[in-house]
Structures are given as C-alpha cells and as structure tokens.
Design a binder for these strands. Sequence first.
DNA 1: TTAATCCCTAGTCAATTACTAAGAAATCAG
DNA 2: CTGATTTCTTAGTAATTGACTAGGGATTAA
Lengths: 153, 153
Amino acid sequence: MKLSTRGRYGLKAMFDLALNFGEGPISLTSIAERQAISVNYLEQLISPLRKANLVESVRGAQGGYMLAKSPENITVGVILTTLEGPLAPTDCVVVDGDDEVCDHSSYCVTKVIYEKIYESITSVVNSITLQHMIDDYHSNQESMIITSICECK
Amino acid sequence: MKLSTRGRYGLKAMFDLALNFGEGPISLTSIAERQAISVNYLEQLISPLRKANLVESVRGAQGGYMLAKSPENITVGVILTTLEGPLAPTDCVVVDGDDEVCDHSSYCVTKVIYEKIYESITSVVNSITLQHMIDDYHSNQESMIITSICECK
DNA sequence: TTAATCCCTAGTCAATTACTAAGAAATCAG
DNA sequence: CTGATTTCTTAGTAATTGACTAGGGATTAA
C-alpha cells in the first residue's frame, strides 16, 4: 500500500513548479537539484504529466516546464493518479465497464471494503490542490529547514 | 498503492473463519479449497495472524484454526495491518519515535498529505469488523453466486 | 500406528521499481 | 551560423519484492 517514488517525486516536482508559477519555464535541472532527484529519472516522470496537460514545456536553451493551469486548479489527486494509476487497493474496484476482474461480481463482501478505502483516498487527494500546499508552506515556512520538502521515502 | 495477496487472501480466510465461528477448529485445507488459495501459501499467512492473537490453532488430526475473539471484536484494520504492515502511503508517516525517516521533519508539505491519506484509510478499515462483513454477507446472500468471495486480484 | 493436521524454513521464478545511459530534436544566445 | 542548453525518447540493468512451491518436522485424534 505504498506510494512509489514516481508519485512522491512527481508531487515534489509539481509543488516546485507551483512555487515558481508565473515565472516562465523552469528547467528540470534546477528542479532536480532543489528536490534532490536524478534529472534523467525526473524526465520520465514529467512526461506523463505533460501528456495529461498538467504541465507545459518550452524546448531548447532557457526552456523548461511550467504548470499548465494555476495551482488552485491542480489537485494532488490528479498528479498522483497520473503517475501511479488509480489510488485503489485492488484492481477490482476500478474495472471500467466490460472487463470484469471478478467472476461473481454481483456482490462481494471484500470488494465493498476495498471500494470504501478507494473512496476515502480519492476524497482526500482530490480535495487538496497545489495552492493548498503553497498556503500551507508559506504559513509554516519559518519552521522549515530548507526550501525542499521531505523525501518521504 | 495496491494491497498484496497477503492482505486480500488473509482477509478472505478470516472472513471464512468468521462464518464458521463457534463451530470448532476449521482446517486450512477446507479454507484453501473454499477460497481457492494454495494451502502452503495460506499457512504462511495464518502464522502472523496467530502470533497477533487473532486466531487460535488446534494441532493434530481434526485440528484447525478458529477466531481467537468474536467477529465483532476483530477489525479489518487489524487483519490487514498484521499482514501488510501499516496501511500508509509512505514510511515517513509511521516512524515510531526516534528514528526519523525525514531529515527536515519539522514541517513537510507532502508529509501532511500522506498523513491525511493514512488517517482516512485507517479510519475506514478500523471501523469495519468481521461481524459487519457477516451481516453484509447475509443480507445480500441471494445475489451471490457462490459461498466464496471475489478474488479482487 | 497412521493419517491428518499444524508449523517452519528455504528456495525459486517473474514482475516491478528505480533508476542509468545515451542519443535525437529543438531553440536561444552570441 | 554555431554551440550550449534543454526537452524528449528509448533501451538497458541491478536490486528488490511478490507470490508462491517444496519439503520436512511436530502433534494429535481415530
């Protein structure tokens, strides 16, 4: 039930972009340095975020990335699901339409539980935006050691 | 963010034991058959459940397992955490006391989010007992195909 | 005594994770 | 125009984890 580095690093990167929102393209190199992530790896994470229209890219020298929307319009939920897939405890709760993972899917006592877990997770992450994180960051900034955020390994 | 087979199979097995609560020891072989799980594998899952005092065992022929408490006193949460460890999206939210996973742990914008996720998950699973599952099962039994429950792979 | 059962440990195979590496394409500055 | 900078893409790889299989010892009812 752990988040992988994809989601964690991706969220860190998006938060970094949010802090620099409106200041033109930010290079991956600078994000990678601030957040202590490998550039090559970060490139692989930013790619799906771009394809999901969460960030825009500017190629070439002095290029970089910027949020495609304002921070209050990007939720933690959409970031994490873009990078990790559905935040569900089982596959059976996210079957889309035809293909049933369950044989006897009419009713399942455990599936009900997994659905409740799924709903509670999505409810939390969908209610938090990057703007919330920025506000949180600014109101607690004095108690932070550095600009960066926790590894949360 | 997926549950492994350990948690899913373990919950199935515990539900099976709950359905047979008060009827003496139930053999792993019979549980394994009903729930379509390998006996050898199930043995490895029941072991931690026994050490956590959730089930009691009777050795020898006609032996088996039974719940150590009544179904309303065993939550889904304790079963899943026994088999999967803490249902947390990151390790940093479950550090116990001294050993800090975070360097700059004074405040962390992402940790706050992971803590909220953790809390919402534990809140759900700790509120559901095996008795709830039994009640749910009985009130929907007619719409179930077989006695067993969904694979939820 | 035998069959059934719990109990424990070791090994194995496949998939996933977390990267590293490298090179092509685009673009800005000089 | 050229070169440095940056995005973009794909391939490879090492370590870990997951999901078992296998086998043998201990215990006990019949």
